[in-house]
């Protein structure tokens, strides 16, 4: 017979000592594995009973502890000292984190539903619409003329009012009347808001008059400039007159050279820190020039700037129609 106690017997001893004896424990402790307990087994069980009895009494003695002297006033002070966390009072508070994304979505939806947002200036279809700088220019954006393979095209602005003569600035000629000329870098309200008035919309290709042929430009009345050139000129004037000058009556090749120089200078200033808006971006609307003039955009481009040259010619020198 094995003299070592089984786990079941040990558990039964525990239950007996701790007063939780179960139905089969008595038989298990008395009879062992079905037979009678040996003398050695009985002795070891008796020893174990003593050990477990001591354990129980010592454990119970651990419950005899000094009295707790903590009172509720101390706990109250601790609660007041630590403060009570703010409870969420309204359902809106828990949704507050979504306010920003929702606002962004609403703003995007409003932007997408805005009918005026479709008016763009890209692709060469339309001319840049810029604030009323008062500068006499024809708003041919060099960026819009980058595609050299584009077919020659004539743009004409219709239905636009003439700019105020007092506020008109002439470049290359002589004078700049600064009556209503905003400072460089100032953005007009139309540009700031991102919406552009319908009156400045560039007419569609189908609406624009078509020309069968363009007559040669007369020396006296022609003005060959690009918007970049004008911007360079404006910058030059503002910066002490070091800008490129294009005189009326200059030959086309000279004009192209000066246009290129002006364009380079104008674009090189775009990243300057003086917050001056590039002249190319400040061009006046197309068709704001003299009455009876039309603008012809040639097919040739400058190899350096790849910008098309715009030519303003008298309407009388142009044959309309096919």
């Amino acid at each position: 017979m094995d003299n070592k106690m089984t786990n079941e017997q040990l558990d039964a001893l525990f239950r007996r000592v701790f007063g939780e004896e179960e139905a089969g424990d008595q038989q298990l402790l008395d009879a062992g594995d079905g037979g009678e307990l040996s003398e050695t087994m009985s002795k070891s069980m008796a020893q174990e009973l003593v050990v477990l009895g001591n354990l129980k009494s010592e454990l119970k003695a651990l419950g005899d502890i000094p009295e707790c002297q903590l009172n509720s006033a101390r706990v109250k002070d601790a609660i007041l000292g630590q403060g009570i966390p703010e409870a969420r009072t309204s359902w809106f508070g828990s949704w507050g984190r979504f306010a920003l994304p929702v606002a962004a979505c609403v703003a995007l939806a409003v932007f997408l539903m805005n009918p005026n947002r479709g008016v763009t200036t890209g692709g060469g279809e339309s001319a840049p619409v810029v604030a009323s700088m008062g500068v006499e220019t024809h708003g041919i954006s060099p960026m819009a003329r980058m595609d050299a393979s584009r077919q020659p095209r004539i743009e004409k602005e219709l239905g636009l009012s003439q700019p105020d003569a007092a506020s008109q600035t002439s470049i290359g000629g002589t004078q700049i009347s600064g009556a209503e000329v905003p400072a460089l870098g100032e953005v007009s309200g139309a540009n700031r808001s991102g919406t552009r008035s319908q009156s400045r919309r560039t007419p569609k290709r189908s609406e624009a008059p078509r020309f069968a042929s363009a007559q040669p430009v007369s020396n006296g009345a022609s003005l060959t400039m690009s918007a970049a050139d004008i911007s360079a000129k404006i910058d030059g004037i503002a910066g002490g007159g070091s800008g490129t000058t294009v005189d009326r009556g200059s030959s086309p090749s000279e004009a192209v050279t000066s246009i290129a120089a002006g364009a380079i200078e104008g674009f090189s200033r775009r990243g300057s820190t003086d917050n001056a808006m590039p002249g190319a971006m400040m061009a006046a609307p197309v068709g704001m020039g003299e009455a009876g003039k039309v603008v012809i955009v040639g097919a040739g481009t400058d190899p350096q700037t790849r910008a098309s040259a715009a030519t303003e010619v008298d309407k009388r020198n142009v044959v309309f129609g096919g």
């Binding site: 000094p66 707790c68 903590l70 601790a78 609660i79 630590q82």
Partner: peptide, 20 residues
């Protein structure tokens, strides 16, 4: 005793703060 009392105090403070 003092450590146990500190624990008791902290327990009841936590309990009050988290009653909800």
């Amino acid at each position: 005793r003092d450590d146990a009392e500190d624990i008791v105090q902290e327990v009841f403070v936590k309990a009050y703060q988290n009653l909800k």
